[in-house]
Amino acid sequence: MIWFWGVLCALALVALFFPFIFWIDFSADFKGVTVCVRFFKKHVYTYEKKFGKKEQSEEEDCSASVDEEVAKAPEKPMESKESPKVEQKSEPESTREPEKTAEPAKTTEPVKPAEKKEEPQSVEEKEEPELSGKKPSDEKSSEKKLQEKNPAEEKAPVNESAEEEKEEKRSLTDVEFWTLLLTPEFDTRAWWAVRHALSALFKLFRMRFADCFVEGIRFQEYENMGYAAALNGVLKSFPYIGAWDFRMDWTRDHEPHAEGHLRASINVCRVLGLILAILFYGGIVAFTFWRRRAKILKTGELPELGFIRSKIVKMMSEDD
């Protein structure tokens, strides 16, 4: 049994700290940019953007062809618009005559249903008093008794509960809200929480550059190129810039070109740590805000702000 639990713990640790690696291959020059994303060795996404003289010539050709089509298009519909006008004038003469004959037939028919409608109304008026009898009077008397008892008992607690709800539901005004946010103590606590949450976010991925270079760097004087090459040797000691190689074009036969690989790794443990950090620091900020809000609603006293912060509060309240 001990071996079983030991194996489970080992598997859990492997699952938490197992790195999921993403590779981003990129290359850029004056002709275009390409970016390729891979998950381990599996290709996921590619992005290509080409620019130069070829695209400009293609766009000019497309615009010229569109202008030619637009110029030719209005010539054809002009002939089709004139032909249907002659046909529409001849049709109404034949259609108007049967409409006049059909109207008198319709005027004579609606006289009959008017007589039928009067019969059900008279029958209902006669039947209503017979069916009602003494029931409505009994119902009215019972309703009056309930109304006499209920208002004295129910109106008082309803009014008290409504007043209590209004007091509890009162929200902060714009001035109170912005003064609460701009108090120095609350700002320091909020920025402290945001800084720690962002640090956890940046630690989510571990990024490393590999085999990155920039070639085709030229200067007018070779001395400046030598200084740049020496600076490149100094930058090799830095963690992220050390993987970059800035190559001087001494022979002036290489065009500017940049290429490299970016390795980003992530694991489940870092994701859980980010979620816990956001919940922890966000809960601290929310608790401080809620406590100060309750104090302002009870006492109605606002904290004193400086000249600049009070001006900002006025500006924000006026904008709202």
Results as ranks from 00 to 15, higher is better:
Lys135Cys: 11
Lys81Val: 14
Phe205Arg: 01
Leu16Asn: 02
Glu103Met: 07
Gly52Lys: 01
Cys62Asp: 11
Lys298Asn: 04
Glu60Leu: 13
Phe202Ser: 12
Glu130Tyr: 12
Glu93Met: 14
Val123Asn: 04
Gly32Asn: 00
Ala102Lys: 07
Met248Cys: 13
Val35Gln: 05
Val37Ser: 02
Lys81Asp: 12
Arg252Phe: 14
Tyr45Ser: 06
Gly233Tyr: 13
Ile24Phe: 15
Arg96Thr: 05
Lys81Phe: 15
Ser237Cys: 08
Cys36Gln: 09
Gly260Gln: 08
Val194Arg: 10
Leu16Ala: 08
His257Val: 05
Phe17Thr: 00
Ala193Val: 10
Glu165Asn: 04
Ala64Val: 08
Lys100Leu: 14
Gly300Lys: 00
Phe51Trp: 12
His261Tyr: 12
Lys236Ile: 03
Ala71Val: 15
Asp29Asn: 02
Leu262Gly: 07
Glu99Val: 15
Trp191Asn: 07
Glu139Asp: 10
Leu180Thr: 06
Leu276Ile: 09
Ser90Tyr: 15
Glu255Gln: 03
Arg252Asp: 12
Cys62Glu: 15
His261Met: 08
Ile2Ala: 07
Pro98Gly: 01
Glu259Pro: 04
Phe246Trp: 06
Phe26Gly: 12
Leu274Gly: 04
Phe40Asn: 06
Glu58Cys: 04
Glu163Ala: 11
Arg270Tyr: 05
Glu153Val: 11
Asp253Ser: 02
Phe307Tyr: 06
Glu55Asn: 09
Phe51Asp: 09
Ser27Gly: 04
Asn224Tyr: 09
Lys126Ser: 08
Lys311Arg: 12
Met225Pro: 09
Lys85Glu: 13
Lys155Val: 03
Ile217Glu: 00
Ile24Lys: 08
Pro84Gln: 09
Trp23Gly: 03
Leu201Glu: 14
Phe219Cys: 03
Phe289Met: 04
Gln220Asp: 15
Glu99Cys: 10
Glu127Met: 09
Phe289Val: 02
Gly273Arg: 13
Glu119Ser: 06
Asn267Asp: 11
Ile275Ser: 06
Pro151Ile: 07
Gly282Pro: 01
Phe205His: 00
Glu160Asp: 05
Gln88Gly: 12
Phe40Tyr: 14
Ile24Gln: 12
Glu148Pro: 06
Lys49Arg: 15
Asn159Leu: 15
Lys236Thr: 02
Ser90Glu: 15
Pro303Asp: 00
Ala243Arg: 01
Ala193Thr: 09
Val7Ala: 02
Phe307Ser: 07
Val70Tyr: 14
Asn232Leu: 03
Glu103Val: 10
Ile21His: 04
Glu97Asn: 03
Gly233Lys: 10
Pro239Arg: 00
Tyr222Trp: 13
Glu153Cys: 05
Lys298Cys: 05
Ala294Trp: 13
Phe177Ala: 01
Glu128Asp: 12
Lys54Leu: 14
Phe17Val: 00
Arg293Lys: 11
Gly233Ala: 12
Glu91Arg: 08
Lys166Glu: 13
Glu160Gly: 03
Trp244Met: 04
Ala114Pro: 05
Glu68Asp: 11
Phe213Glu: 00
Ala73Tyr: 13
Phe213Gln: 01
Ala64Lys: 13
Ser141Asp: 00
Lys311Thr: 13
Phe51Glu: 10
Val285Arg: 00
Glu75Asn: 07
Glu91Cys: 06
Ser317Asn: 04
Ala12Gly: 08
Trp23Arg: 10
Ser142Thr: 13
Cys36Pro: 01
Asp320Phe: 13
Trp5Lys: 00
Ala286Leu: 15
Glu185Asn: 03
His261Val: 14
Glu163His: 06
Met1Tyr: 09
Ser317Pro: 10
Ala102Cys: 09
Glu160Lys: 04
Glu55Thr: 06
Glu127Asn: 01
Glu59Asp: 15
Ala228Glu: 02
Ile266Gly: 00
